[in-house]
Amino acid sequence: MNVTVITKDEHTVVALRGRLDTTQADAVEKEVVEILDQKHSHIIFDCKEMDYISSSGLRIFLIAQKRMMATGGQLKLCSLQAGIQEIFDMSGFSMIFSIFPDLESALNG
């Protein structure tokens, strides 16, 4: 799993690449928590190249969502692959995240 961060205007775009499985989850969680600690107001998780997510991975998204909600910030997800979108739908997570089809709409929405 590879995590890269770029800044676009007021948005902090966190691009996740590869498989977010149980073995990777701890390391990714640390990186994500570090990003959250910087108190950005707008964070977008770009999941265009994220191929797999386990329940431990979902937990990271959840942590981010809770932290952003607590600080009044805004978290968006974009470009979910079909299989992952399905997991989000099935687990009901689609209901608690703002999900956009692509990065552009996430930046504008």
């Binding site: 959840l62 739908d89 099935m90 687990s91 009901g92 997570f93 209901m95 608690i96």
Partner: peptide, 11 residues
């Protein structure tokens, strides 16, 4: 049908 609710323990 797919679940209409999120997992337990979140909110």
């Amino acid at each position: 049908d797919k679940a209409k609710a999120i997992p337990l323990g979140l909110f």
